[in-house]
């Protein structure tokens, strides 16, 4: 049963990945004007253009081009960025860790805030303290409705520019590169600083992380709080919750000790979905805080119409999304014994 479930999920993921590849192929080939022109320069002769066309495979029919593109992908070749003139794969390799750091911090905040808020809202639903539920509801809808770039701008203006509590931009204090340089293990600065015991660097990164992570965490916090509330209330409406109440457990205990585990399945799945969403949302935040991640890279790629780079970003983020979904599906199987049945 379990094995068949795994195989089916994997097969689905493969179909999705193929679709993702086709889309990114279309994006990559949609170079404005002529890719051969971009590759050779505007003053190239006709024969140079023809040679470039042949080299790039642009004279081949589209399916052949797609096949080649697939072959390139398998070898880790995502093409060359028109803007940085570097291989897109290596560009992404250097930009992704900073993004994962930022999105990871935001998601951590969102889970730490969203789940307790959802529990609170579920606990005080209706009743005399219904105000708690309404506040959480309004707060989470606000968080979900706020354009993340507006949030980022306001946080930056208030807490960095005006109050000066946090730095305005950057990932860490660049002066530290000379005073306490970081030895690189994972490329994720905060992790490297942690495992090498580089306290000065760790403090600096965390200090820089607060504002962008907060801006990015708003949406995930809102949806996680709402989903936690809804899933908990759904569980609490089941017969077993009445049974647990009848055994002498209070409302909060029934929610936290008995319902949270079953409710965590949809919440967990949501976390994975929202992670990918936050990764895309980071495109809107990073350039404001000058965070050296995928978002800043994408913003530049968009403004310079760098289609191979955009295709690479699309592919990478979509793959992260597919892998996360798969991972969550498997984790769910472990969390909720009922899922194993089907």
């Amino acid at each position: 049963m379990l094995a068949r479930h795994l195989v089916r999920r994997l097969a689905q993921a493969v179909v999705v990945v193929l679709g993702v590849v086709v889309v990114s192929f279309l994006v990559a080939r949609a170079v404005p004007g002529d890719a051969a022109v971009s590759a050779t320069g505007a003053r190239a002769s006709a024969s140079e253009l023809a040679a470039a066309r042949e080299r790039l495979g642009l004279d081949q029919p589209l399916p052949v081009q797609l096949f080649r593109y697939l072959g390139d992908l398998v070898r880790g070749d995502l093409g060359t960025s028109l803007h940085t003139r570097q291989p897109v794969a290596s560009d992404l390799g250097s930009a992704l860790p900073a993004s994962l750091e930022l999105v990871g911090a935001a998601m951590l905040l969102a889970v730490l805030l969203g789940i307790p808020l959802g529990i609170l809202a579920a606990r005080f639903r209706g009743g005399r303290a219904g105000g708690v539920d309404v506040s959480v509801r309004v707060g989470s809808v606000l968080a979900v409705s706020a354009p993340v770039f507006l949030l980022a701008l306001v946080l930056q203006l208030v807490f960095a520019t005006r109050l000066g509590w946090f730095p305005t931009a950057g990932e860490y204090d660049r002066a530290l590169d000379t005073t306490s340089p970081l030895s690189v293990w994972t490329d994720i600065t905060v992790v490297d600083a942690l495992i090498t015991g580089n306290g000065a660097m760790l403090a600096s990164v965390l200090h820089h992380l607060v504002l962008p992570a907060l801006a990015l965490a708003a949406y995930p916090t809102g949806v996680i709080a709402q989903m936690t509330r809804a899933a908990l209330l759904e569980e609490a409406a089941q017969d077993h919750a009445r049974m647990e109440r009848a055994l002498g457990f209070g409302r909060l205990a029934v929610l936290v000790r008995f319902s949270l585990r079953a409710a965590s399945a949809p919440v967990l799945q949501l976390v994975a979905l929202v992670f990918a969403y936050a990764l895309v949302n980071s495109f809107l935040v990073e350039s404001i805080f000058n965070w050296p991640g995928l978002g800043s890279y994408t913003a530049t790629a968009i403004s310079s119409v760098d289609t191979p780079a955009i295709a690479g970003v699309t592919l990478t983020v979509a793959l992260v999304y597919v892998v996360l979904n798969l991972a969550v599906d498997l984790a769910q199987t472990a969390l909720d014994p009922r899922v194993r049945l089907t």
Binding site: G19, V20, S24, A276, V280, F283, I302, T314
Partner: peptide
């Protein structure tokens, strides 16, 4: 399987 904003962006 695409986050909507990502596909829109592409």
């Amino acid at each position: 399987a695409f986050p909507a904003l990502l596909l829109s962006l592409a």
